[in-house]
């Protein structure tokens, strides 16, 4: 059932390609704006700025990407889902789907970003692991928050203010691991942060899995 639903989400996304294209364009233009505002030529950005800027761009793109998973969905369609699928299956499917979407967005982001702002990453493997962990964490937080925001009138502003403080600890960990990957430090140095990130992901994931059914009933 969950897999069927994920397949359905993919098909739906593919049929409404303008939404996906919009996200990619959003990402690309934000990166280009940063490039022009900093007025840099290749490799002139310090690694700290490069790193922070990258993750802020990804954070905003993720909020935009996940926001549409509940906000703006027609009530009739939600009622239909309500009648055919259990809330647990729905939230799991959406979280998995959004994680995949965010991994895709982040990889596209890395590609554009390093193309025009330079690529200081030393440990690509750790960087990719970090991206996957970040995508899963962001997706499980943002999916539930988007459901909450959609029940509360569905404004994007509400979505942003509700998710920022919750996502911040996660973002700080991600930025730290990512900085370690850029500097090419020993992997054992990042182990603590990676484990914390994993623990936060597990907590947030479990809590949204447990809470979503109560939200869905309204």
């Amino acid at each position: 059932m969950i897999i069927e639903f994920i397949k359905k989400e993919f098909k739906q996304e593919w049929r409404n390609r303008y939404a996906l294209n919009g996200l990619v364009l959003y990402l690309a233009s934000t990166i280009f704006i940063c490039y022009l505002s900093f007025n840099v030529r290749n490799e002139e950005l310090s690694p700290i700025t490069w790193n922070a800027l990258f993750w802020i761009i990804i954070l905003f793109a993720s909020i935009n990407a996940v926001a549409k998973s509940f906000i703006g969905e027609k009530p009739e369609r939600q009622l239909y889902y309500y009648s055919i699928i259990s809330p647990q299956a729905l939230i799991t499917a959406r979280v998995v789907y959004n994680s995949l979407l965010l991994v895709f967005l982040a990889l596209t982001g890395v590609f554009f970003y390093s193309l025009i702002l330079g690529n200081p990453i030393d440990d690509i493997g750790l960087f990719l692991i970090n991206i996957i962990l970040a995508a899963v964490g962001f997706s499980s937080t943002l999916t539930l928050v988007s459901a909450i925001a959609s029940k509360a009138g569905g404004s994007q502003t509400l979505m942003a203010i509700l998710s920022f403080p919750i996502i911040l600890p996660m973002l700080l960990m991600v930025i730290k691991v990512s900085k370690n990957a850029i500097d090419g430090l020993e992997r054992s140095v990042s182990l603590d942060e990676v484990l914390t990130l994993l623990a936060i992901n597990v907590i947030v994931g479990t809590v949204s899995f447990l809470l979503f059914p109560y939200l869905w009933r309204t």
């Binding site: 937080t141 947030v204 809590v207 939200l215 309204t218």
Partner: peptide
């Protein structure tokens, strides 16, 4: 009441790693 209860629980569980681990 219902939606804010959900957010309250979610927020509190996000607060714990923040205050005790980070």
């Amino acid at each position: 009441a219902r939606i804010s209860a959900i957010y309250n629980i979610f927020a509190f569980s996000a607060l714990i790693p923040l205050l005790f681990i980070l």
